[in-house]
Computed example of a mutant assay.
Amino acid sequence: MSAAGQDTVVTIGTRGSPLALAQAHEVRGRLARAHGLDEDRIAIRIIRTSGDAIQDRPLLEAGGKGLFTKEIEEALLAGTIDLAVHSSKDVPTFLPDALWLSVFLTREDPRDVFISPKAASLQDLPAGSIVGTASLRRQAMVLRLRPDLKVASIRGNVETRLRKLAAGEADATLLALAGLNRLGMADKATCILSVDEFLPAVGQGAIAIESRRDDDRTNALVAAIGDADAETALAAERSFLALLDGSCRTPIGGHCQVRGDRIAFRGLIISPDGRESYETAREGARGDAVQLGADAARELRDRAGEKFFTLFGGA
């Protein structure tokens, strides 16, 4: 992996999984092309996060998705890296005051995929089959569609989860199509789940760049590779999440489509067993993305009642 040297222009911090590295290399390539730089002048530093180290229990028991960003953010604050590359869905709603999500790259396909050696689709799985996933959202949505199935926790990077599936630890699993595409493994998908039937996680498919607010030089460099549509979509989705997502224990889905000057947003909260759910939708001007996402969240909080969040561990 490239190390920082005297000729280094900027240093990227990232997790060390194959997917995280693919995303970091995508950012490096885009920066190099945008600024006419040799890629070797953009260093990549691998940072092992708590989320990577903890493999013996569900992340919810250890602190939630912030475990995938904590050590990287510490490196940013210490100045040992200039920017961090994250999967947007791994980034907590609230960041340290000195940091911000400065740029989102053009969004990949946000859909989930169903993968199984035993069935062509989720609906085709025999009753009692085991679906392996570490995602509370995917668990809840599987059980809503197929309450006769069982869900077991399978953790690890994409390759690890596919190996566990092949070894028979589960009959099927669900993964993000974006990750498979970035790894050149889209052929592993048995079928793609539509957004209408299986609402993605907030931020799914989008790469986020995090940097220091006061680092004008880095912020100017990354601004050249940002995508305005992705920024608008994520503004709505993260605004929705911010008013719902206290401890990451409530399954939440949210997806915003940008069509020119208009946006269409859908949001969902659902109990972990899939039996109780509340959905809503909003359409409006792209300039109102933050307000639309927040308004959708307030509606669902009102409809579900605070008891819903107390029972299912949310805010």
Rank of each mutant, 00 (worst) to 15 (best):
M141W: 10
D97I: 06
F308C: 02
M185L: 15
T133H: 05
D90L: 15
A294R: 15
Q291V: 12
L95H: 03
G226T: 07
F265Y: 14
L105R: 09
A32E: 02
A281Q: 14
F198H: 11
Q6P: 14
R161C: 10
V151Y: 01
T160K: 13
L21K: 12
E159I: 09
A172R: 00
G287M: 08
A119W: 07
L76R: 01
D215T: 08
S271P: 07
D148V: 09
D227L: 01
D124V: 04
G267S: 06
G314E: 02
D124E: 09
N219V: 07
D261I: 11
V113A: 14
I269K: 02
V91Y: 06
K70P: 01
V27L: 04
E276M: 08
A127L: 03
L221K: 00
Q6A: 12
A186M: 10
R249D: 02
I270D: 00
A294T: 08
G246V: 05
E74H: 11
D56W: 11
R107N: 08
R161E: 07
G267Q: 02
V195F: 06
L101T: 07
S153M: 14
E279V: 15
Q257T: 12
D52W: 05
I270N: 03
L244R: 00
C256P: 01
S102C: 07
W100T: 10
T11E: 04
D97L: 06
L105H: 04
A43C: 14
A32I: 06
D245V: 06
R182I: 05
T80P: 07
V158A: 11
F198N: 02
N181M: 08
L243V: 03
A206M: 13
N219L: 11
A34M: 08
E159G: 11
A208M: 14
L125S: 04
H35G: 03
E197K: 12
A223E: 13
A62P: 04
D40S: 11
L67H: 02
E169Q: 13
L177S: 03
R111L: 10
S194F: 06
D112S: 14
R144K: 15
R298L: 05
A170W: 02
R41F: 04
D40T: 14
D288Y: 14
A264H: 13
G226E: 00
D97C: 00
A172V: 05
E71D: 08
L31P: 00
T160G: 02
D216F: 11
T106I: 11
I225V: 15
I209F: 09
L183T: 11
R266P: 05
L143M: 12
A34P: 10
H86F: 15
L177V: 08
